[in-house]
Simulated assay, not measured.
Amino acid sequence: MTTDLPAPEAPETESVGAGLPEVVDTVAVAKLYGAPLFELPQDLYIPPDALEVFLEAFEGPLDLLLYLIRKQNFNILDIPLADVTRQYLSYVDQIRSTNLELAAEYLLMAAMLIEIKSRMLLPPKKTEEGEEPEDPRAELVRRLLEYEQIKLAAAKLDQLPLLGRDFLRAQVYIEQSLKPRFPDVSIDELREAWLEILKRAKLTQHHKITREELSVREHMSIVLRTLQGRRFVEFQELFDPSRGPQVLVVTFIAMLELARERLIEVTQAEAYAPIYVRLAYQPA
Protein backbone atom coordinates (compact mmCIF):
# COMPACT_ATOMS: atom_id res chain seq x y z
CA MET A 1 0.00 0.00 0.00
CA THR A 2 1.46 3.36 -0.98
CA THR A 3 0.56 6.77 0.45
CA ASP A 4 0.66 10.06 -1.45
CA LEU A 5 3.11 12.45 0.17
CA PRO A 6 2.24 16.14 0.54
CA ALA A 7 5.71 17.21 -0.54
CA PRO A 8 8.53 15.34 -2.30
CA GLU A 9 10.99 16.41 0.41
CA ALA A 10 9.32 14.27 3.08
CA PRO A 11 11.43 11.09 3.51
CA GLU A 12 9.00 9.22 5.71
CA THR A 13 5.72 7.43 5.03
CA GLU A 14 2.76 6.69 7.23
CA SER A 15 3.15 3.52 9.29
CA VAL A 16 0.97 0.57 8.31
CA GLY A 17 0.10 -0.35 11.89
CA ALA A 18 1.02 0.32 15.45
CA GLY A 19 4.42 -0.97 16.49
CA LEU A 20 5.74 -1.43 12.91
CA PRO A 21 8.80 0.39 11.58
CA GLU A 22 8.41 3.40 9.33
CA VAL A 23 10.00 1.74 6.29
CA VAL A 24 7.29 -0.48 4.79
CA ASP A 25 9.47 -2.54 2.42
CA THR A 26 11.53 -4.16 5.21
CA VAL A 27 11.52 -7.97 5.05
CA ALA A 28 9.39 -9.45 7.85
CA VAL A 29 11.18 -11.88 10.19
CA ALA A 30 7.98 -13.74 11.08
CA LYS A 31 4.20 -13.67 10.95
CA LEU A 32 2.00 -13.41 14.02
CA TYR A 33 -1.68 -14.34 13.46
CA GLY A 34 -1.23 -13.51 9.76
CA ALA A 35 0.31 -10.07 10.35
CA PRO A 36 3.98 -9.44 9.42
CA LEU A 37 6.46 -9.04 12.26
CA PHE A 38 9.50 -6.93 11.39
CA GLU A 39 11.46 -7.30 14.63
CA LEU A 40 11.41 -9.77 17.49
CA PRO A 41 9.70 -8.71 20.74
CA GLN A 42 12.05 -7.75 23.56
CA ASP A 43 10.38 -10.16 26.03
CA LEU A 44 10.46 -13.20 23.68
CA TYR A 45 11.72 -16.33 25.46
CA ILE A 46 13.13 -19.21 23.42
CA PRO A 47 13.73 -22.44 25.42
CA PRO A 48 17.25 -23.91 25.13
CA ASP A 49 15.87 -27.20 23.73
CA ALA A 50 13.69 -25.50 21.11
CA LEU A 51 16.21 -26.23 18.36
CA GLU A 52 18.86 -28.92 18.33
CA VAL A 53 21.27 -29.57 15.47
CA PHE A 54 23.41 -32.71 15.38
CA LEU A 55 25.99 -32.99 12.64
CA GLU A 56 26.57 -36.66 13.41
CA ALA A 57 23.96 -38.94 14.99
CA PHE A 58 25.39 -41.62 17.30
CA GLU A 59 23.50 -44.39 19.01
CA GLY A 60 25.68 -44.44 22.12
CA PRO A 61 29.22 -44.10 23.47
CA LEU A 62 30.49 -47.20 21.66
CA ASP A 63 29.10 -45.88 18.38
CA LEU A 64 30.90 -42.55 18.84
CA LEU A 65 34.16 -44.23 19.86
CA LEU A 66 34.04 -46.60 16.89
CA TYR A 67 33.32 -43.65 14.58
CA LEU A 68 36.40 -41.75 15.81
CA ILE A 69 38.62 -44.81 15.36
CA ARG A 70 37.39 -45.72 11.87
CA LYS A 71 37.34 -42.12 10.65
CA GLN A 72 41.08 -41.71 11.28
CA ASN A 73 41.99 -45.26 10.25
CA PHE A 74 43.35 -46.17 13.67
CA ASN A 75 44.21 -49.78 14.37
CA ILE A 76 41.46 -50.99 16.62
CA LEU A 77 43.87 -53.49 18.24
CA ASP A 78 46.29 -50.67 19.10
CA ILE A 79 44.13 -47.65 19.90
CA PRO A 80 45.97 -44.35 20.55
CA LEU A 81 43.94 -43.51 23.65
CA ALA A 82 45.33 -39.99 24.06
CA ASP A 83 44.12 -38.76 20.66
CA VAL A 84 40.84 -40.66 20.79
CA THR A 85 40.06 -39.50 24.33
CA ARG A 86 40.79 -35.87 23.42
CA GLN A 87 38.40 -36.00 20.45
CA TYR A 88 35.84 -37.91 22.46
CA LEU A 89 35.83 -35.31 25.26
CA SER A 90 35.45 -32.45 22.77
CA TYR A 91 32.26 -34.05 21.47
CA VAL A 92 31.00 -34.66 25.02
CA ASP A 93 31.56 -30.98 25.85
CA GLN A 94 29.33 -30.05 22.93
CA ILE A 95 26.42 -32.21 24.04
CA ARG A 96 26.80 -31.24 27.71
CA SER A 97 25.85 -27.67 26.84
CA THR A 98 22.54 -28.78 25.34
CA ASN A 99 21.55 -32.07 26.95
CA LEU A 100 23.04 -32.98 30.30
CA GLU A 101 21.13 -36.26 30.62
CA LEU A 102 22.45 -37.49 27.27
CA ALA A 103 25.99 -36.45 28.20
CA ALA A 104 25.96 -38.54 31.40
CA GLU A 105 26.10 -41.79 29.42
CA TYR A 106 29.00 -40.50 27.34
CA LEU A 107 30.85 -39.28 30.45
CA LEU A 108 30.91 -42.83 31.77
CA MET A 109 32.77 -43.99 28.67
CA ALA A 110 35.11 -40.99 28.94
CA ALA A 111 35.95 -42.00 32.51
CA MET A 112 36.67 -45.53 31.29
CA LEU A 113 39.06 -44.22 28.61
CA ILE A 114 40.91 -42.10 31.15
CA GLU A 115 41.19 -45.07 33.50
CA ILE A 116 42.59 -47.30 30.74
CA LYS A 117 45.09 -44.59 29.78
CA SER A 118 46.21 -44.21 33.40
CA ARG A 119 46.66 -48.00 33.73
CA MET A 120 48.81 -48.00 30.60
CA LEU A 121 51.09 -45.30 32.09
CA LEU A 122 51.73 -47.35 35.22
CA PRO A 123 54.35 -50.12 35.12
CA PRO A 124 52.70 -53.47 34.42
CA LYS A 125 52.43 -55.98 37.22
CA LYS A 126 53.07 -59.61 36.48
CA THR A 127 50.54 -62.19 37.54
CA GLU A 128 51.15 -64.84 40.16
CA GLU A 129 51.91 -67.39 37.45
CA GLY A 130 54.57 -65.12 36.03
CA GLU A 131 52.67 -64.34 32.83
CA GLU A 132 52.51 -60.96 31.19
CA PRO A 133 49.47 -58.91 32.31
CA GLU A 134 46.63 -58.40 29.92
CA ASP A 135 46.52 -55.21 27.89
CA PRO A 136 44.14 -52.73 29.62
CA ARG A 137 42.60 -52.01 26.21
CA ALA A 138 41.67 -55.66 25.58
CA GLU A 139 38.19 -55.48 27.12
CA LEU A 140 37.38 -52.24 25.27
CA VAL A 141 38.63 -53.71 21.98
CA ARG A 142 36.48 -56.78 22.48
CA ARG A 143 33.37 -54.65 23.07
CA LEU A 144 34.14 -52.48 20.03
CA LEU A 145 34.61 -55.50 17.74
CA GLU A 146 31.38 -57.11 18.94
CA TYR A 147 29.48 -53.84 18.50
CA GLU A 148 30.89 -53.39 14.99
CA GLN A 149 29.82 -56.90 13.99
CA ILE A 150 26.30 -56.29 15.27
CA LYS A 151 26.16 -52.91 13.52
CA LEU A 152 27.28 -54.41 10.19
CA ALA A 153 24.74 -57.22 10.56
CA ALA A 154 22.01 -54.66 11.25
CA ALA A 155 23.03 -52.71 8.14
CA LYS A 156 22.82 -55.88 6.03
CA LEU A 157 19.37 -56.63 7.44
CA ASP A 158 18.28 -53.08 6.67
CA GLN A 159 19.35 -53.53 3.04
CA LEU A 160 17.04 -56.51 2.61
CA PRO A 161 13.72 -55.79 0.85
CA LEU A 162 11.16 -54.72 3.41
CA LEU A 163 7.43 -55.03 3.02
CA GLY A 164 5.86 -51.59 2.91
CA ARG A 165 9.19 -49.84 2.25
CA ASP A 166 10.69 -51.52 -0.83
CA PHE A 167 7.74 -53.48 -2.16
CA LEU A 168 4.05 -53.95 -1.59
CA ARG A 169 2.06 -57.14 -1.38
CA ALA A 170 -0.07 -57.66 -4.47
CA GLN A 171 -3.73 -57.99 -3.68
CA VAL A 172 -6.34 -59.01 -6.23
CA TYR A 173 -10.02 -58.90 -5.48
CA ILE A 174 -12.23 -61.19 -7.56
CA GLU A 175 -15.94 -60.64 -7.46
CA GLN A 176 -17.54 -64.05 -7.68
CA SER A 177 -21.08 -64.40 -8.86
CA LEU A 178 -23.41 -65.13 -6.00
CA LYS A 179 -25.07 -68.45 -6.75
CA PRO A 180 -27.64 -69.75 -4.31
CA ARG A 181 -26.42 -72.86 -2.58
CA PHE A 182 -29.24 -75.14 -1.60
CA PRO A 183 -28.70 -77.37 1.41
CA ASP A 184 -29.45 -81.07 1.34
CA VAL A 185 -33.07 -82.02 1.99
CA SER A 186 -33.66 -84.01 5.15
CA ILE A 187 -35.89 -87.08 5.26
CA ASP A 188 -38.38 -85.32 7.52
CA GLU A 189 -38.77 -82.41 5.13
CA LEU A 190 -39.31 -84.79 2.21
CA ARG A 191 -41.90 -86.78 4.22
CA GLU A 192 -43.79 -83.61 5.18
CA ALA A 193 -43.86 -82.50 1.55
CA TRP A 194 -45.17 -85.94 0.51
CA LEU A 195 -47.91 -85.84 3.17
CA GLU A 196 -48.96 -82.42 1.90
CA ILE A 197 -49.29 -83.86 -1.61
CA LEU A 198 -51.48 -86.68 -0.27
CA LYS A 199 -53.72 -84.19 1.54
CA ARG A 200 -54.25 -82.26 -1.63
CA ALA A 201 -54.92 -85.50 -3.54
CA LYS A 202 -57.70 -86.52 -1.13
CA LEU A 203 -59.51 -83.27 -1.81
CA THR A 204 -59.79 -84.13 -5.52
CA GLN A 205 -60.64 -87.85 -5.36
CA HIS A 206 -62.76 -89.48 -8.06
CA HIS A 207 -64.91 -92.54 -7.47
CA LYS A 208 -64.53 -93.94 -10.95
CA ILE A 209 -63.12 -97.44 -10.65
CA THR A 210 -60.69 -98.32 -13.39
CA ARG A 211 -57.78 -100.65 -13.69
CA GLU A 212 -54.71 -98.98 -15.03
CA GLU A 213 -51.25 -100.39 -15.43
CA LEU A 214 -48.73 -97.84 -14.32
CA SER A 215 -45.04 -97.97 -15.25
CA VAL A 216 -42.37 -96.44 -13.04
CA ARG A 217 -39.99 -96.12 -16.01
CA GLU A 218 -42.63 -94.26 -17.97
CA HIS A 219 -43.15 -91.78 -15.13
CA MET A 220 -39.39 -91.42 -14.77
CA SER A 221 -39.34 -90.26 -18.39
CA ILE A 222 -42.27 -87.90 -17.69
CA VAL A 223 -40.39 -86.33 -14.75
CA LEU A 224 -37.26 -85.92 -16.86
CA ARG A 225 -39.23 -84.26 -19.66
CA THR A 226 -40.87 -81.94 -17.15
CA LEU A 227 -37.46 -80.87 -15.84
CA GLN A 228 -35.93 -80.56 -19.29
CA GLY A 229 -34.96 -76.95 -20.10
CA ARG A 230 -35.98 -75.66 -16.68
CA ARG A 231 -33.56 -74.63 -13.98
CA PHE A 232 -35.71 -75.46 -10.95
CA VAL A 233 -39.18 -76.99 -10.58
CA GLU A 234 -41.14 -76.96 -7.37
CA PHE A 235 -41.78 -80.35 -5.84
CA GLN A 236 -45.57 -79.96 -6.09
CA GLU A 237 -45.48 -79.24 -9.83
CA LEU A 238 -44.31 -82.80 -10.58
CA PHE A 239 -47.58 -84.27 -9.32
CA ASP A 240 -51.04 -84.11 -10.82
CA PRO A 241 -53.58 -84.66 -8.01
CA SER A 242 -56.41 -84.97 -10.49
CA ARG A 243 -55.09 -88.36 -11.70
CA GLY A 244 -55.57 -90.00 -8.33
CA PRO A 245 -53.33 -91.40 -5.56
CA GLN A 246 -52.08 -94.29 -7.71
CA VAL A 247 -50.43 -91.97 -10.22
CA LEU A 248 -49.06 -89.82 -7.40
CA VAL A 249 -47.47 -92.86 -5.75
CA VAL A 250 -45.90 -94.03 -9.02
CA THR A 251 -44.65 -90.50 -9.76
CA PHE A 252 -43.13 -90.25 -6.30
CA ILE A 253 -41.43 -93.64 -6.71
CA ALA A 254 -40.14 -92.54 -10.13
CA MET A 255 -38.71 -89.38 -8.59
CA LEU A 256 -37.00 -91.36 -5.84
CA GLU A 257 -35.56 -93.75 -8.41
CA LEU A 258 -34.19 -90.83 -10.44
CA ALA A 259 -32.63 -89.35 -7.30
CA ARG A 260 -31.06 -92.72 -6.46
CA GLU A 261 -29.55 -92.90 -9.94
CA ARG A 262 -28.31 -89.29 -9.52
CA LEU A 263 -30.24 -88.06 -12.51
CA ILE A 264 -32.05 -85.38 -10.52
CA GLU A 265 -31.25 -83.30 -7.42
CA VAL A 266 -33.70 -82.40 -4.69
CA THR A 267 -32.71 -79.13 -2.97
CA GLN A 268 -34.04 -76.70 -0.44
CA ALA A 269 -32.84 -73.17 0.41
CA GLU A 270 -33.45 -73.44 4.16
CA ALA A 271 -35.53 -75.31 6.70
CA TYR A 272 -39.30 -75.23 6.01
CA ALA A 273 -38.63 -73.57 2.66
CA PRO A 274 -40.14 -74.87 -0.61
CA ILE A 275 -38.46 -77.93 -2.06
CA TYR A 276 -37.12 -77.76 -5.60
CA VAL A 277 -36.13 -80.44 -8.08
CA ARG A 278 -33.69 -80.01 -10.95
CA LEU A 279 -31.69 -82.10 -13.37
CA ALA A 280 -28.36 -83.28 -12.02
CA TYR A 281 -26.74 -82.51 -15.38
CA GLN A 282 -27.14 -79.67 -17.83
CA PRO A 283 -27.20 -80.76 -21.50
CA ALA A 284 -24.91 -78.84 -23.83
Rank of each mutant, 00 (worst) to 15 (best):
Y67S: 08
S118F: 09
F74W: 15
V84Q: 04
L64I: 08
L162D: 03
E146C: 06
A153Y: 11
R86P: 00
N99C: 03
K117Q: 13
R143G: 08
L145A: 06
E105A: 15
L89G: 12
L163Q: 06
L100N: 05
V141F: 05
Y67M: 05
A103K: 03
S118K: 15
Q159G: 11
F74H: 15
R169L: 15
L163P: 04
D78T: 13
T98G: 01
A170G: 13
A153N: 11
N73T: 11
E146R: 09
M112P: 00
A155C: 02
L66C: 05
E101P: 00
V141N: 06
M112V: 02
R70V: 07
E105H: 04
Q159H: 11
Y91G: 03
Y147N: 10
V172Q: 15
Y106I: 02
A153E: 14
E115C: 10
E132I: 08
Y106V: 01
K156G: 00
P133R: 09
L160S: 06
L102G: 01
L144E: 13
A138M: 11
P161K: 08
L77M: 10
E132M: 07
R96A: 00
E148M: 12
E139I: 05
F167Q: 02
D63F: 01
P123G: 11
E129S: 15
